[in-house]
């Protein structure tokens, strides 16, 4: 172990270098393909053109307004879904009867693809932000709820019984026994939900036309502003990367006491 650790600095730097090299290579190929005429630049503009357009976007207020719209529906939807899932999950999870009785209903509702609700959202809310919220909340709710239920099912029976015989009430047991056990699962659920929420927020904007980056992508595509469209796609990818990174950092912070995270640090 020790030997690996001391040697890790070298390979790590090398891995980072290779990773950066991979990204540069990708952009070089992208630049070359349309320039050499392998793909028509009407469909795939060279990378430099797209990056220049992206740089230009970054200085435009309208672009940041779109980003703000998308991120608002993302954050709001994720928040509502998480609170709802935690409340429902703790209620269902605290009783064997409820867990059993709701099993089939949850298993039936969960796989319904949230995009099936698009027509319904259009019908009820039109192109306002509530349409996006409906899809985002529905999709991320199940991610969080299911992980939370797995977590509660994982509670150590002995620990629970011990808490009971020490006279801890129902609420105290939720706080001191169930919550710490379920927290790692909850964080996994949150991480998955954060990614899913972004997908659904963009989808709603793309298909329904609620304001945000997705709508802008659809507009640039139908308007033939191809390098703008590619620039926006890159921007959504970057937001996705930031969300994934942020979720992982928060997970590590919140679970710093947990063996699975502590283990990573020791290694």
């Amino acid at each position: 172990m020790r030997k690996q650790r001391s040697a890790a600095a070298g390979p790590k730097a090398k891995a980072l270098g290779l990773g950066i090299g991979g990204i540069i290579l990708f952009f070089l190929i992208w630049e070359a393909a349309p320039r050499l005429g392998l793909v028509s630049d009407r469909y795939l503009p060279p990378a430099s053109e797209v990056l220049a357009r992206l740089g230009q976007y970054l200085t435009e207020a309208a672009f940041w307004k779109d980003v703000a719209d998308t991120m608002t529906s993302w954050a709001l939807g994720l928040f509502i879904a998480t609170v709802a899932a935690i409340v429902v999950g703790l209620i269902i999870g605290s009783s064997r009867f409820l867990r059993r009785a709701t099993h089939t209903t949850i298993e039936f509702l969960r796989p319904i693809p949230s995009v099936a609700l698009i027509p319904l959202a259009v019908l009820i809310f039109g192109t306002s932000i509530e349409s996006t919220l409906l899809l985002v909340v529905y999709a991320s709710f199940w991610q969080v709820l299911l992980q939370l239920l797995y977590g509660i099912a994982d509670v150590d029976a002995v620990a629970n019984d011990t808490a009971k015989s020490y006279g801890l009430g129902r609420l105290a047991r939720v706080r001191y026994v169930i919550w710490p056990t379920a927290l790692p699962y909850l964080m996994t659920g949150l991480r998955l939900a954060a990614a899913v929420a972004l997908i659904l927020a963009i989808t709603a904007e793309l298909i329904i036309g609620t304001p945000g980056l997705g709508k802008q992508i659809a507009l640039t595509q139908s308007g033939g502003a191809i390098s703008s469209m590619y620039a926006l796609v890159l921007a959504t990818g970057m937001i996705g990367v930031l969300i994934n990174l942020g979720a992982r950092i928060i997970e590590k912070r919140v679970l710093s006491w947990h063996p699975s995270v502590r283990g990573e640090v020791v290694l």
């Binding site: 090398k14 891995a15 290779l18 990773g19 950066i20 090299g21 991979g22 990204i23 290579l25 990708f26 469909y43 990614a195 972004l198 997908i199 963009i202 989808t203 793309l206 298909i207 997705g214 992508i217 659809a218 595509q221 191809i226 469209m229 590619y230 926006l232 796609v233 959504t236 990818g237 970057m238 937001i239 996705g240 990367v241 969300i243 994934n244």
Partner: peptide, 24 residues
């Protein structure tokens, strides 16, 4: 090592935005 950051990026792109792109 070469591809990992690139793959992470591709995974982070919300797949629905690929619809207009691939349509083109």
């Amino acid at each position: 090592n070469l591809l990992e950051p690139l793959l992470e990026f591709f995974r982070a792109i919300p797949p629905p935005v690929l619809v207009p792109l691939l349509m083109l």
